[in-house]
Amino acid sequence: GLTEEQKQEIREAFDLFDTDGSGTIDAKELKVAMRALGFEPKKEEIKKMISEIDKDGSGTIDFEEFLTMMTA
């Protein structure tokens, strides 16, 4: 499992990506986040990433899903 410290770091990354503070990361926010990390993702790639992570089919990534992605 994760230490509380690791969870906190992932939470901070999540909050950075969640620019509108909605508690979820949408495609637009993910794209901005990827760019910040030096990637140039295409729209299809973003969609694919979200569909792989987005277990509940909401079209957005919540913290639990993000946590799973970061620790996979």
Score class of each variant (00 low, 15 high):
Gln6Asp: 06
Met34Asn: 00
Asp18Thr: 05
Gly38Phe: 02
Asp62Thr: 15
Leu30Pro: 00
Ile53Phe: 15
Glu45Tyr: 12
Arg35Tyr: 08
Met34Ile: 05
Asp56Met: 09
Asp15Ala: 13
Asp26Phe: 09
Glu44Gln: 08
Glu4Phe: 10
Met69Ala: 07
Leu16Glu: 04
Asp62Gly: 08
Gln6Cys: 14
Thr24Asn: 04
Ala27Ile: 15
Met49His: 03
Asp18His: 03
Thr60Arg: 10
Ala13Phe: 14
Arg11His: 03
Met34Trp: 06
Gln6Ala: 07
Thr19Cys: 12
Ser58Met: 06
Glu29His: 13
Gly21Trp: 04
Ala36Ile: 11
Thr68Gly: 08
Thr3Asp: 04
Gly1Pro: 08
Ile61Asp: 00
Leu2Arg: 04
Arg35Phe: 05
Asp20Met: 05
Glu65Arg: 14
Glu44His: 10
Gly23Pro: 01
Leu67Asp: 00
Glu40Tyr: 15
Asp54Tyr: 10
Lys43Tyr: 14
Ile53Trp: 15
Gln6Gly: 04
Ile61Gln: 00
Leu37Ala: 05
Met70Asn: 00
Lys55Cys: 07
Gly23Tyr: 02
Ile53Pro: 02
Gly38Leu: 02
Lys7Leu: 13
Arg11Cys: 05
Ile46Glu: 03
Thr3Val: 03
Met69Thr: 02
Asp15Asn: 15
Gln8Leu: 08
Arg11Ser: 01
Ala36Gly: 04
Thr19Ile: 13
Asp54Cys: 14
Gly59Gln: 05
Ile10Cys: 11
Asp62Ile: 04
Arg11Lys: 07
Glu12Gln: 12
Thr3Met: 04
Ala13Cys: 14
Gly59Ser: 07
Thr19Tyr: 13
Leu16Ser: 05
Thr24Trp: 11
Thr60Glu: 09
Asp54Ile: 11
Thr60Asn: 06
Gly21Asn: 07
Lys48Asp: 06
Ile25Ala: 00
Lys55Pro: 06
Asp20Leu: 04
Glu52Met: 14
Lys7Pro: 02
Glu52Ala: 12
Lys42Met: 10
Ser22Met: 03
Glu40Thr: 14
Lys43Ile: 14
Thr24Arg: 09
Thr3Arg: 05
Ala27Lys: 06
Phe39Asp: 01
Lys55Ala: 06
Asp15Phe: 10
Glu44Met: 09
Met49Asn: 02
Ala36Asn: 06
Pro41Asp: 05
Arg35Leu: 09
Gly59Asn: 04
Thr3Gln: 03
Ile10Leu: 12
Ile10Trp: 14
Ser22Lys: 06
Gly23Glu: 02
Phe66Ser: 00
Lys42His: 11
Glu9Phe: 14
Asp54Lys: 12
Val32Thr: 13
Glu45Gly: 05
Leu2Ile: 07
Glu64Met: 07
Gly57Pro: 05
Ser51Gly: 07
Gly57Cys: 12
Gly23Cys: 07
Arg35Val: 06
Glu29Thr: 12
Leu2Cys: 11
Gly21Ile: 02
Ile50Asp: 02
Glu5Gln: 12
Leu67Tyr: 08
Ser58Arg: 08
Gly23Asn: 03
Asp26Tyr: 09
Ser51Trp: 09
Leu30Glu: 00
Glu52His: 12
Arg35Lys: 11
Glu45His: 11
Ser22Asp: 09
Glu44Ala: 08
Asp18Gln: 03
Thr24Leu: 05
Ile50Arg: 02
Gly59Tyr: 08
Glu4Gly: 05
Lys47Thr: 11
Phe63Tyr: 05
Phe63Gly: 00
Asp54Leu: 13
Asp56Gln: 07
Phe63Pro: 01
Thr24Glu: 06
Leu30His: 00
Arg35Trp: 07
Glu40Cys: 15
Phe39Tyr: 10
Ile10Asp: 00
Asp20Ile: 03
Met49Leu: 11
Lys7Glu: 05
Phe17Cys: 11
Glu40Met: 14
Asp15Met: 14
Ala36Cys: 14
Gln6Glu: 08
Phe14Arg: 00
Glu9Val: 14
Glu12His: 13
Ala72Asp: 06
Phe63Leu: 04
Met70Trp: 13
Lys55Asp: 05
Thr60Tyr: 07
Ala33Asp: 00
Ile10Met: 11
Lys47Ile: 13
Glu65Asn: 07
Glu64Trp: 13
Glu9Lys: 15
Glu4Val: 09
Ile46Pro: 01
Lys7Ala: 08
Lys43Thr: 15
Lys55Trp: 10
Ser51Val: 04
Asp54Pro: 03
Glu45Thr: 11
Gln8Met: 11
Gln6Leu: 11
Met70Gln: 01
Ile50Thr: 03
Gly59His: 06
Phe17Ser: 08
Asp20Asn: 09
Val32Met: 15
Ile25Leu: 14
Ser58Gly: 06
Phe17Ala: 15
Glu9Pro: 04
Asp15Thr: 12
Asp15Val: 09
Ala36Pro: 01
Phe14Ser: 00
Glu52Thr: 09
Thr68Ile: 11
Leu37Trp: 05
Thr19Glu: 06
Met69Trp: 15
Asp54Gln: 06
Lys47Arg: 10
Ile25Cys: 04
Ala72Tyr: 14
Asp18Lys: 06
Phe66Met: 02
Ser22His: 04
Glu45Gln: 09
Ala13Glu: 02
Gln6His: 09
Glu45Trp: 15
Glu44Trp: 10
Ser22Gln: 03
Met34Ser: 01
Phe14Met: 01
Leu30Asn: 00
Ala27Pro: 06
Glu29Gly: 10
Thr24Pro: 01
Asp20Arg: 05
Ala33Ile: 15
